[in-house]
Design a binder for these strands. Structure first.
Lengths: 207, 207
DNA sequence: GTCTATAACCTGATAGAC
DNA sequence: GTCTATCAGGTTATAGAC
């Protein structure tokens, strides 16, 4: 193992910093993290952050774009897939999103926080203006059940998938649920949400 | 209108600071707000914050407790009310919570953020340990449908009520929905959520 | 490329005049 | 009680040695 042949475990300095930044920024947010926290987390000196990334803000920007792409890059293709049925979309979205969030439990809160700080950002990640209004998903809900506002339905669907992760720390404390049990619940949820969504679609619309 | 008879509009200095603190802290969170922001928002000098509240942290603590009590003080009594049916609880919770959040749209995000920063806090606001596990709501769901995990159901119910408000800025940007239209949607939602929750309770449980 | 030392700046808190 | 001016400490960013 010569010095120039790094093992898989040890990344380049630049990548070490990015990895540390991902971790600290997602946990504490932009304002509450100090560049020193990131340097320490990376096991490196503070000056290197500026050497590689010029500023805290630029480093954050890189992490932020990554996270946004992860969050929306999964969601939008499913919602706008013209070759799957609405029922398939419910199953794909629920199962895939919960898997994604199980490996990235802090992702939704980070994304929601960032959108609140800067709502204009969201337009960079929705492919085009009125993307959602014109999406296949919205059309399919409209065809299935004209009296139902498809955006109301989507809000509920997303809420059922995402909210448990936003609420995770509080929920676990309140119900004495450890990570293992929480994971089991979320896996179970992959089947519950499509079933429940279909029940909602079938339910009589209230006056 | 003598000097000593203030009009309803102008509050005491102390109350002006608190009101400004509520506004800025809820919008930007603890770390991102500077005491100078609060002073400016209140139209007062920075030194007065420390005169009245000793420190940024103490001022934040006061605002935070208020918000937590507002958030949980409404939820817990409904969930644990022994003299209402499960169906009534669904209706009361949905209607009441959405009304609360329409006048306090930033409340859920603030509370969720605070719980993430300090999960132990939540135990101060849940009246006793295992409050939720032993609650009337959980018992009633269990009686109604033994094969359904009542916590899964509660997560969905809360998600449907709360998530739209957490997502509000992004949703509005993405769908070109102004505040007036958003409010209409949420009022409509007060009827949708109980109907949908009941449909979930009636739906066949997936294997 | 990586480090130590330090500059430049920002922020919470206080002193002291009014 | 309220203000201006300032301090003390912490934080980002950089200079310069290695």
């Amino acid at each position: 193992m010569a010095k120039k042949t790094p093992m898989v475990a040890d990344l380049s300095t630049e990548e070490k910093i990015k990895e540390a930044a991902r971790k600290v920024f997602t946990r504490k947010g932009y304002s509450a993290t100090r560049t020193r926290d990131i340097a320490e987390e990376a096991g490196l000196n503070l000056a290197l952050l500026n050497y590689y990334f010029r500023s805290k803000e630029k480093l954050f920007g890189i992490v932020m774009v990554e996270k946004m792409q992860k969050f929306f890059g999964f969601l939008l293709p499913i919602i706008n897939n013209p070759s799957t049925s609405l029922e398939s979309k419910l199953e794909n979205l629920s199962a895939g999103y919960i898997d994604l969030l199980l490996t990235n439990p802090d992702l939704p809160f980070f994304v929601l926080a960032e959108i609140r700080n800067n709502p204009d950002l969201i337009t960079n990640f929705a492919q085009k203006k009125d993307f959602l209004r014109d999406s296949v998903f919205i059309k399919q809900v409209r065809e299935k059940k004209t009296e139902l506002d498809p955006f109301q339905f989507l809000l509920s669907l997303l809420g059922m998938c995402i909210f448990p992760f936003v609420m995770k720390p509080g929920f676990q404390k309140l119900t004495d649920t450890d990570d293992q049990k929480f994971k089991q619940m979320m896996l179970e949820r992959k089947k519950l949400i499509p079933a429940w969504s279909k029940a909602i679609l079938k339910a009589k619309h209230p006056l």
